[in-house]
Amino acid sequence: MIEFIKRLPKAELHLHIEGSLEPELMFRLAKKNNVTIPYESVEELRAAYDFTNLQSFLDIYYAGAKVLITQDDFYDLTWEYVLKCVENNIVHTEIFFDPQTHTERGIEFATVINGIKQALADAEKQYGITSAIIMCFLRHLSQEEAFATFEQALEFKDDIIGVGLDSAELDNPPSKFTEVFKAAKDKGFKLVAHAGEEADYSYIYEALDLLDIERIDHGVQSINSPELMQRLKDEQIPLTVCPNSNIELKVFDSYDEHNIKELLDYGLNVSVNSDDPAYFKGYMNQNFINLYENIDLSEADVIELVKNSFRSAFISDELKATYLAQVDAAV
């Protein structure tokens, strides 16, 4: 089964590029850019990846991002993830980036997007990997700050397919960002939002009804509302679930408590993704393998999860059909 998982072509729809910053690259860039990080070694840094909740992770996540300074740094960061895509047989990826994490430090928006964009362009040339870029607003900041970032993004509209919402969920509901998401929709951006990870399922309702999003990132708390479960099933709204992340951030105490199988069996459009894999102990294949080894996940379940990722991608129907045929061929 593990070899079967590795063999299947996959799409990744929930990946924070800053969250793919491996300790080795972090130390290398810190040295190059003369940035001090509060760890003496790669081993000490990895040992710090013992999170108690989302905020404890974000503290290290934002500290690590400080080493990213130049366009080449963002290229190198993205290229290392591209190589992980090759290793994990990810043939299409839609990556998140957090411009505010960088512009607040004085890094130009263009520096960030151009480094990421060039690496993804090279990935398609060299490996045939297709991709899209989604810009996320940091929900612990204000809507006014989100609007300022949105205005910067308009110059790069052709490079950014959508906008999302991430960072600390608790006490930062989707309703806080209603107007900026309306502006993004008016400009033709695809809309996604993190909701229902740590906060309750009411955040999912807000994301759907107030932000008018097309995909829910996480969404595992939907299990607590029969009415919401039925709506998600009827409308086939995608949930981009991140199992390793949910375990590492204590959304579930253990893998055998994870509800992805229950969501799938109910008929929801769920997929498997790696979120911040450098911090959460594994990329796409490892998330699948951990599920298989800890819950009753069948070969048919794996196939459905993989196909859901392509069905939910922001790509043409023709490309979806091509990728789904590749899955069938691999099976």
Rank of each mutant, 00 (worst) to 15 (best):
S20M: 03
L25C: 12
F27E: 14
L29W: 08
L29A: 08
A30H: 05
K32Y: 04
N33W: 10
N33Y: 08
N33C: 06
N34D: 15
V35Y: 13
T36N: 15
I37R: 06
I37W: 01
P38K: 15
P38G: 14
Y39H: 11
Y39Q: 09
E40R: 13
S41T: 05
S41Q: 13
S41E: 13
S41M: 13
V42Y: 03
V42F: 02
E43N: 03
E43C: 00
E44I: 11
E44N: 12
R46Q: 15
A47E: 14
A48L: 03
A48E: 05
A48C: 04
D50W: 05
D50P: 02
T52K: 11
N53W: 00
N53Q: 02
L54D: 10
S56K: 08
S56T: 14
D59A: 08
I60C: 05
Y62H: 11
Y62K: 11
A63W: 10
A63Q: 13
A65V: 15
A65Q: 09
V67E: 01
V67I: 07
V67T: 06
I69H: 11
Q71D: 07
D72V: 07
D72G: 03
F74Y: 10
Y75C: 13
Y75F: 14
T78D: 05
T78Q: 06
E80R: 07
C85T: 13
C85A: 02
C85E: 00
C85Y: 00
V86H: 04
E87W: 04
N88W: 05
N88T: 07
N89F: 00
N89A: 06
V91S: 06
V91M: 07
H92M: 12
H92S: 08
E94T: 15
